[in-house]
Simulated scan of single mutants.
Amino acid sequence: MRRLNYPKVISEINRFILEKTSEVGGNGAVIGVSGGVDSATVAYLAAKALGKEKILGLIMPYYMNGDVEDAELVCESLGIEYKVINIKPIVDAFVSKLGFQPDKRSLGNIMARTRMVLLYAHANVKNYLVLGTSNRSELLTGYFTKWGDGASDYAPLVNLYKTEVWEIAKLLGVPEKIIKKKPTAGLWKDQTDEDELGMSYHLLDEILWRLVDLKRHKDKIAEELGISVGKVEYVEGLVRRSEHKRRLPLGPSF
């Protein structure tokens, strides 16, 4: 993987958050805090950049499980204002009007988009910006819900791979419990990111870095990492098929 000067990266992200908030006359930032390392890292960065009194954390569970406690731990360790909003009644009411029962992936997308609506509702009333929590690994593979967790005003981690976010989190003092837990989007019970992606983030990031940033040939990547070409082609396919999620809607030219 690439070698970053992490203290410098933290300083640059803090500058970015402060600068972008000031540019639009924002009073602060609202963050969806899930109990995972990405949202925790964004919360820590934002509190450092803007001051804890200008941060609102929204904890929006569908399943009332240990993730809620972890999210509260993050908010309380920072001393930021936070709210817990159980989205199950909202999502279930929405589903009841569909006229069909969505599968678990579609239901997960509805959850993510419900959270987006709540984030922007609170941002609007407080004149806050919504800070997204997606990282570069998720962005490149399309591992996010379009117009859901992929929707934000600014995304401080979007140029950092997941494994780099873990390093940033350690330096910021994010609770070890949060850093070490298995990454999950919390869209259904026992769901984990790495199970869905089909490989560890460590391997995924090594492939993505070589494939996208260094633009190395898939055969060379497979040789360097001691893996099959098929694994590289699989990641290449994730990047290619998710291109539409990384751009605004397109229309025909006349």
Rank of each mutant, 00 (worst) to 15 (best):
N5C: 03
F94R: 01
V84W: 07
L78E: 06
E12T: 01
G198E: 07
V229C: 02
Y120F: 15
V33E: 05
L56Q: 05
L214S: 11
A43V: 11
V165N: 10
E196W: 00
V37K: 02
G79R: 06
A71M: 05
E138G: 07
G108R: 00
W147R: 04
I31H: 08
G36P: 09
E138N: 07
M111L: 07
L140C: 05
V37W: 04
L98G: 09
L98Q: 08
L211D: 09
K146L: 14
A151I: 09
P183G: 00
S200H: 07
E81Q: 14
G79L: 08
M60L: 15
K231I: 03
Y201T: 05
V125Y: 14
W188M: 01
Y62K: 01
A169L: 08
V74P: 05
K8C: 03
G99A: 08
L214C: 12
M60H: 01
N65M: 01
S253D: 14
D67Q: 04
V125P: 11
V158L: 14
I110V: 12
Y82P: 13
K97M: 14
A46V: 12
E243P: 02
V174G: 05
V174R: 01
N159E: 15
S134L: 06
I90C: 06
L129S: 12
R210D: 15
V24M: 07
W166H: 13
K97R: 15
A40T: 06
G26E: 08
R210T: 04
H244P: 11
S134T: 12
N5L: 03
E12P: 07
G251N: 10
F254V: 15
